[in-house]
C-alpha cells in the first residue's frame, strides 16, 4: 500500500466530519474517493497532506506516518486540494518557479508540467488573467512539479465545463499509465466509474464501502445505469447473458443495469441490432441523488 488511513477521525467543534475512516490505496491504482458534498472528502485529504491533524488515527504514506513526520512524509506526493489558488499578480510560471524553489525541484520540470497541462502558451501570463479551467490545470501542474509517485487530487474537475472535465480525466488516465498512483475525490459517480480501478464511498464522514471497481460494480446498487427501451423483458434477457453486465432488472419500461461504463455504446448497438428501440441512457451521476433517494425511500444504504 502506498497510502493507508487508519481509523482517521476529525472533529470540527462537536461535529464529526470524518469518523473512523480506514482506507488502503494500492500502488499503481487510480483510487476514486466518492461522497456527496459535505461528506468529509476534503477533510480526509487535508489530513493526508498534513494540512490538518487528525483527532484520532493516522495516515501512513510509503511507511511514514504523517502525524509523526509532518510535511517530511510528503516526499514524492503531489497534491491539489479544493480550488487551485496562486499568487494572482504573478505569472503561472513564476508561481511554479517559487514552488520549485521550495524543495529544490529542477526548473526544467516547469516547462514539462506546463506542457503536460496544456498551459505552455499561457505560462507567462499573470494568473489573474486565467479562466477557472486554466487555474485548475495550473493546480494540477503544481501537483506534478516534483515528479510525484502519488498524486492526491481533491475534486479536480470542479468548476470545469464538460470538455474541461474530459481533459482532466484523460490526463489522469495518461499519468496512471506512466505509473503514478492517483487518489482522486469526486461527488460524481459517473466520473469515478469511468476512470478508477478502485473506489471508496463515504457518507457523513463514514466509509460506506470500498474496494476494486469491478467488485463494487457487481455488488453496489450505487453504480446503476438506467436504460429506457421499447421492450424491457427482451433487453433484460439480452444483457443478462453478457459477462460484463453484473446485474440487470427491469421496472416499468426501463432497465436498471450494473455494468462497465466503457461498454455502454456497445450495449446500445447490440440492443438496436436486436430490434429493441433505445430512447435514453441515464447514468447515475451524482451521489447526492442516490443518497437522497435512499433516505427518501427509508431503506438503509
Amino acid at each position: 500500500m502506498i497510502l493507508e488511513a487508519k481509523n482517521l477521525t476529525k472533529f470540527y467543534g462537536l461535529r464529526k466530519a470524518v469518523d473512523g475512516l480506514h482506507l488502503e490505496i494500492p500502488q499503481g491504482s487510480v483510487y476514486g474517493f466518492l461522497g456527496p458534498n459535505g461528506s468529509g472528502k476534503s477533510t480526509t485529504i487535508r489530513m493526508m497532506t498534513a494540512l490538518i491533524s487528525p483527532d484520532e488515527g493516522e495516515v501512513v504514506i510509503k511507511g511514514k506516518s504523517v502525524n509523526q513526520f509532518g510535511n517530511e512524509a510528503l516526499n514524492g506526493v503531489g497534491a491539489l486540494i479544493e480550488r487551485a489558488d496562486f499568487h494572482k499578480h504573478l505569472s503561472g510560471r513564476t508561481n511554479l518557479e517559487m514552488l520549485a524553489r521550495m524543495d529544490g525541484t529542477n526548473f526544467d520540470r516547469i516547462d514539462y508540467v506546463l506542457e503536460r497541462t496544456g498551459l505552455s502558451q499561457r505560462g507567462d501570463d499573470k494568473v489573474k488573467t486565467y479562466s477557472q479551467g486554466m487555474k485548475q490545470r495550473l493546480g494540477i501542474a503544481q501537483a506534478l512539479l516534483s515528479n510525484p509517485e502519488l498524486l492526491i487530487l481533491d475534486e479536480p474537475t470542479n468548476g470545469l465545463d464538460p470538455s474541461g472535465m474530459k481533459e482532466v480525466r484523460d490526463l489522469i488516465g495518461e499519468l496512471s499509465a506512466e505509473g503514478i498512483t492517483i487518489f482522486v475525490s469526486s461527488h460524481l459517480l459517473d466520473e469515478v466509474q469511468k476512470i478508477c480501478t478502485h473506489a471508496a464511498i463515504i457518507h457523513l464522514g463514514r466509509l460506506i464501502t470500498s474496494g476494486e471497481m469491478d467488485t463494487l460494480l457487481k455488488d453496489s446498487e450505487l453504480f446503476v445505469t438506467e436504460i429506457r427501451v421499447s421492450d424491457a423483458a427482451k433487453t433484460t434477457e439480452l444483457l443478462s447473458s453478457l459477462d460484463w453486465v453484473f446485474h440487470c432488472e427491469s421496472s416499468n419500461g426501463s432497465v436498471k443495469v450494473n455494468m462497465d461504463k466503457a461498454r455502454i455504446s456497445y450495449a446500445v448497438k447490440l440492443l438496436v441490432e436486436s430490434g429493441v428501440e433505445v430512447s435514453a441512457v441515464i447514468p447515475r451521476t451524482s451521489l447526492e441523488e442516490v443518497f437522497l433517494s435512499k433516505i427518501g425511500s427509508g431503506s438503509p444504504i
Binding site: T49, A50, L51, G70, N71, E72, A73, L74, N75, V77, A79, L80, I81, E82, R83, A84, D85, F86, H87, L99, M102, D103, G139, Q142, S146
Partner: peptide
C-alpha cells in the same frame, strides 16, 4: 489567499 494549500503540502517543514 489559499496559498498554504499549495505550499504546506510540500515536503518542506
Amino acid at each position: 489567499n489559499g496559498i498554504f494549500r499549495i505550499t504546506l503540502t510540500r515536503p518542506v517543514s
